[in-house]
Write a protein that binds this DNA or RNA. Sequence first.
DNA 1: AAAACCGCCTGTCGGC
DNA 2: TGCCGACAGGCGGTTT
Length: 276
Amino acid sequence: MPELPEVETIRRSLLPHILNKPISSGKVLYERILQNIAPEDFFQIMVGNRFLQLTRRGKYLLFTLEKDWVLVAHLRMTGRLLYVSKQEIPLGRHTSLYFAFQEGGTLRLEDVRKFATVNLLPQTQLQRIEGLASLGVEPLSEQFSLEVFQKILEGSSAKIKGVLLDQRRLAGLGNIYSDESLFLAGIHPERAANSLNAQEQKRLYAAIILVLEEALFYQGTTLRDYRTGRGGEGSFQNKLQVYGKKGEQCPRCGSDFAFKKVAGRTSHFCPVCQKE
DNA sequence: AAAACCGCCTGTCGGC
DNA sequence: TGCCGACAGGCGGTTT
């Protein structure tokens, strides 16, 4: 499931292929992907237009177009964004939307489970996308200081796992990197966020940054659906310590890993290294 | 006000 | 072998 490192990898891998190329045509095959606009209006704006910039905020990708339009994409669970150089290659079975560039090549959004969303709106209206407007701090930015993180933790008595997943507090963590960060820091997912002592706060802060940076270096985690913008697989799945390790033992202490639903998601942790 | 729960979707897997 | 329920998890909306 694309989290921050995956979405950032997609951004970087699409960037060299899609900028400043006039869009000559396109099609929506799953209409409900368009959140705020009808297909006819959508293509009226898109055809003849060009992507000028591609940026990321949390798990959102923002394609800036001419005339101040912005296409905002969120891949949710199984969405993929792919640049395919040969226009003739048939569309995948789960293609929801594609654009063809005048000079050849297509940009495609594929999504098995159809949760992905696309909005097209003027730059000045971006705040209309509630989830985007309310995003918290970017964990790989300079704004994410230890002090900022401490404020987040101390401001909530909810379970730490739920706080890490709350995009309004911290933008970009999903289930995989939350579990990996908590394991690395040795903190139980059900601890109250405001119960962490200064040392634990610091460990978790460092763990989040380390895990995200390493995952980004390895171009994300491909367990099933995730692909880069060019169709490649990431390799951080080979570096996972705890996520998906059912039936295996903790590399640190040898105990059997534990599993439990916390904040609605399966949490993976070591019951010995991560005491409640 | 915050937290828990549900619906959206389809493919995969384990059990019988 | 084939069927079926459970499960995967991000997020918005609803309920508690």
